[in-house]
């Protein structure tokens, strides 16, 4: 067995063992101390809730994921365009950058009901909320990436007669990729949470709606099930982002290998 495989196994094995112990303890407390199910369901109750409601959970997941992806797409698009414009025109940057930062102090939960009033109960207000949430980390990190490009490299490109567009394409854009993926990892989880929160406020479909319903019927087991499901979805999205980064930044892979 090689060293890398061994380190991977130990990386997974230890937290997995800890989790297993925790679950056993939890199960034992629920079984022996007679905790009411509506307050704290046992792990086996949660597992049962998963099994019973699987079909329903999946259909709600589909809705939430659709919102998440559409929201992510437009959030990244607007974030990217804003960053490009702010990088190109320093006047625009001076004007709107502080506003963007201040806008982030407004809590998501506060805007969600307003969006419902303005845009209705359909998918649109959810997507708009996700766009608002994703836009910030993406635009700020991209701008950071663009402007942290090495001044000497840009001078060298200029001496070669490169146009602004070429400098952007060959230097600034690749230079910002690392920043972009760091913020994308945060953004995907924000997007899922944004979707769920906006579904709480109003709507008929999605994991947030399901959550509101099971809460009102005191089905704590189903509540736990949907919370776990949302965590798993976020984890999978983060993992996908890491994979995407791996594919998009082959040099980074090489550099990491050299460093270790």
């Amino acid at each position: 067995m090689n060293a890398r495989l061994r380190s991977t196994i130990s990386k997974i094995a230890f937290p997995a063992a800890a989790l297993l112990l925790l679950l056993l303890l939890w199960q034992a407390i629920c079984s022996f101390c007679d905790v009411p199910k509506f307050m704290l369901p046992s792990p086996s109750d949660v597992a049962k809730a998963f099994r019973d409601d699987w079909q329903l959970l999946m259909s709600h997941t589909r809705v939430t994921l659709t919102e998440t992806f559409i929201g992510l797409f437009f959030g990244i698009l607007t974030g990217f365009l804003t960053a490009v414009i702010m990088d190109r025109f320093s006047v625009v940057r001076k004007m709107i950058y502080p506003l963007i930062v201040v806008s982030q102090t407004i809590p998501t939960v506060a805007i969600a009901p307003l969006l419902v009033i303005w845009l209705g109960y359909q998918m649109l207000p959810k997507i708009v909320l996700i766009v608002l949430v994703v836009f910030f980390p993406i635009s700020v990190s991209l701008l950071e990436g663009f402007s942290s490009s090495d001044a000497d490299t840009i001078n060298l490109m200029r001496s070669m007669g490169a146009s602004r567009m070429q400098i952007f394409r060959y230097v600034k854009l690749p230079n910002s990729l690392g920043h972009f993926f760091s913020s994308l990892k945060i953004s995907v989880t924000y997007a899922v949470v944004g979707a769920v929160v906006s579904e709480w406020i109003g709507g008929t479909e999605g994991l947030g709606c399901y959550m509101t319903r099971v809460r009102k019927s005191f089905s704590a087991d189903k509540m736990f099930a949907v919370i776990i499901l949302i965590s798993v979805i976020s984890l999978i999205l983060i993992w996908l982002t890491v994979m995407l980064q791996h594919v998009c930044m082959p040099w980074d892979r090489q550099n990491k290998k050299n460093r270790s």
């Binding site: 090495d150 000497d152 490299t153 001078n155 060298l156 490109m157 200029r158 001496s159 070669m160 007669g161 490169a162 060959y170 230097v171 690749p174 230079n175 990729l177 930044m249 040099w251 980074d252 550099n255």
Partner: peptide, 25 residues
């Protein structure tokens, strides 16, 4: 700009491009 070639003290090879793609820049 763009008439004589210029090389600086630092190699300034772009870390995200292969040597070949740096050279053809």
């Amino acid at each position: 700009t763009g008439r004589v070639s210029y090389m600086l003290q630092k190699d300034l090879l772009l870390p995200y491009r292969t040597i070949e793609d740096n050279v053809i820049l």
